[in-house]
Simulated assay, not measured.
Amino acid sequence: MLNLMSVRNLAIVATLLAVFLSGAWINGARWEANHTAYVADVERRNSIALDQARSEEQRRQTAIEGIRKDAQDKIDAAAIDATVAGATADGLRAELDRIKRARSSCASATNGSQAGADSTAVLTDLLEEVERAGRAMAQEAQRRGNAGRACEKSYDAL
């Protein structure tokens, strides 16, 4: 009887051990499946994040390139404006020279007045000085304005 009891206990222990091991195997398989799904999810999210980061970097680079091009276009337009202003100043200088020659011929014909010639020379000198100062100020203002706008646009693009 003791022998039968021992076999019975042994059978119960073996059955419990089999149930436990099968449960562990099922839990192990379930854990492995969960782990595989987790790793796949992490890889998918990482891929999405990388794609978004690349897209954002391209957007920013495109925006900055557009700002740089816009600033260069404004610099080119300012250079054209300066050329036009220079041509206008050359025209004013030519007109002053014409007035100077006309006054000098009138002055010599009438035994001339030096005051007319002096005022024309003063106007010529004044025009040149104002033109130089105006060009310098306009160029600096244009340069600073373009640089400031480009900086603001670059910052806003970020």
Rank of each mutant, 00 (worst) to 15 (best):
G86P: 00
A24Q: 07
G28P: 00
G28W: 03
V42A: 07
A49D: 14
M1I: 12
V122W: 10
L17A: 09
L127S: 03
R132L: 07
G145T: 09
A11H: 03
L127A: 11
D97Q: 13
A157G: 05
E95P: 04
A102W: 06
R44F: 02
A117W: 08
R98D: 14
L16M: 07
A79L: 13
S6M: 14
S6K: 10
V42P: 01
S119A: 15
A121V: 12
A71Q: 03
T88S: 13
A14C: 00
R149T: 03
Q142I: 06
A63D: 05
L17M: 03
N34A: 15
L21N: 04
N111P: 03
A117Q: 12
A136Y: 02
G134N: 09
T124W: 01
A40R: 10
A77P: 01
A150W: 00
L96P: 03
E56H: 07
R101Q: 14
V39G: 02
G23T: 00
I12D: 08
S55G: 12
L50G: 02
R132F: 04
S105K: 13
L4M: 14
S154K: 12
A121G: 08
K153S: 15
A147E: 15
E129W: 04
Q52K: 13
Q114N: 09
A121W: 03
A53I: 04
S47T: 13
S105E: 14
L2C: 03
S113A: 11
R149E: 11
D81C: 04
Y38W: 06
Q52G: 08
G28A: 05
V122Q: 15
Q61L: 09
L16G: 13
A11T: 07
A147R: 11
I99G: 12
E140W: 00
S113M: 04
A77I: 00
